[in-house]
Amino acid sequence: MSFCPAAPASPVVNSAVPSEKPPTVRFRDVGLRYGRSPEILRDISFDLEPGSFHFLTGASGAGKSSLLKLIYLANRPTRGQVQIFGQDAQRMRPKDLPGLRRRIGVVFQEIYLMEHLNVFDNTVLPLRIAGQNPQDYRNDAAELLNWVGLGRRMDAMPETLSGGERQRLAIARAVVGRPSIVLADEPTGNVDHEMGLRILRLLVELNRLGTTILIASHDQDLVARSGMPVMHLDGGRLSHSQSPFQPDLGAEPMGAGDI
């Protein structure tokens, strides 16, 4: 296993053609409401094909985080059907959910770091939970931290990290288990524009390696620069569009040096 982007580069799949494999995520007429409040998501239908890269945009409170929560199984839809890796989320047995969650990497909006664990321990958390042998992953984890630019801060405690470093640590933790899909909720929300671009490059690199990516963001400029397909939430409904601008993240493949 290696996280080095020098691995055989597959083409960027940002508008993947539907294949015979089931979509990584499928929503059909999904609605969601909290309690007796009006529906926050209405009639949402979309597919995320394996290896695709999408942005999820919308105003604050449009339901972006709620939609992501439905995908990473932190919430259940009020109506409609949600399929993850071809399995119906509503019909899954509770004991099967942890295994499924391990295939989903999440960068939470609130980041949620374990403040008493150092950078390295935070990063490998999903692997420890999965019961893997430390000898099998510690080299890969160190390589991953180098890749996200935290190679020299592996023993640092989260409270000493900057906003950008915390975000990159959260991304490292989300991808260390080689998930099939990475969901990032406002991953550039707490960082400056330059750091936002760096984080975006990281996610693009992951996508090059075949990981499906969905990023919720209200940073219109960043979304426009990426040139990736956009799913826009407005009034609880979803619309699809292609980014109006061409990618402007750097023409060459990015690696650790860029970070």
């Binding site: 990473y72 509770p94 942890p98 969650r101 949620y112 999965a130």
Partner: peptide
Amino acid sequence: LLHLTGAQD
């Protein structure tokens, strides 16, 4: 966090 990261109950 542990729950959403895939830990068994």
